[in-house]
Write a protein that binds this DNA or RNA. Structure first.
Lengths: 78, 78, 78, 78
DNA sequence: ATTGCGGTTTTTGCCC
DNA sequence: GGGCAAAAACCGCAAT
């Protein structure tokens, strides 16, 4: 097995990733801003974070349940 | 601030940790044995793992909910 | 000091944050996709990651240097 | 090939595994406690971890060597 | 300033 | 050996 490895292509991949990471960082910063704003309105960061974490956990559990059902179906050949 | 750092004491800590890690590994091995046994009885590892993961997630969500309640109470000075 | 705390406003904040976190996750997934694509073309993930980390460090160093220069200039009233 | 699959037996397996995972978690917590205690006595966690990792690698290397010797012996009919 | 705590990333291990 | 889940290491914020 062989690949055509070129500096130019590698550079393309790296730049695409760097661009996306930049984007990700911007979004993180926006999230921080919202927390700051909420805090300024009297909402405790700690509580807001905890609510969000709980909601995420619940959503993950629901998704997992669905995935489990799919696994069952697959196992039963449905 | 200063501490009394000694090779003997360091050794004690390291040995305690190594002993516990040994124990942990033994438990992991027992878990693997159970999976193997279950598989031998026709229970698919993939499904068993998924069920356990789901149950863990649900438990974590319940615990988190409780923690959130505590945070609320604290915030309200109760 | 008092604030107007309302469930509706809290909900707004939470939903804004969740939306942004969703966005962040999507970007993360895109990054993973690029790594996968690169890998499919024969570029080792581990190495690509190293290059990116290195470039980020270099960029940080340049930014740092620039910030230092600005501090100097300001101190000199330029 | 057929198996007798029952909800009751599946439950047994799951509970056995969950019990063992609980145990594992407890051991992990004990390990954390030891690290904390050591830290309280002035021993840096990071360094203690490094030492332990190093010792484990050395042990693995010795075990490996021993296993190799056994292979040789067996091959020579000893 | 220091330390706990969450989140993120990296590494490890497992199963296929 | 390649993908996926768990564990460990690392980092950064926040609270004290």
């Amino acid at each position: 097995m062989s690949y055509e490895i070129t500096a130019a292509e590698l550079r393309q991949y790296i730049e695409r990733i760097e661009r996306l990471e930049e984007e990700k960082k911007e979004t993180s910063d926006l999230i921080k801003d919202v927390y700051k704003e909420a805090k300024g309105q009297g909402y405790e960061t700690k509580i807001v974070k905890q609510i969000i974490r709980l909601r995420r956990m619940e959503k993950d559990a629901r998704d997992e349940e669905e995935a489990l059902l799919d696994t069952y179906k697959e196992a039963l050949g449905l």
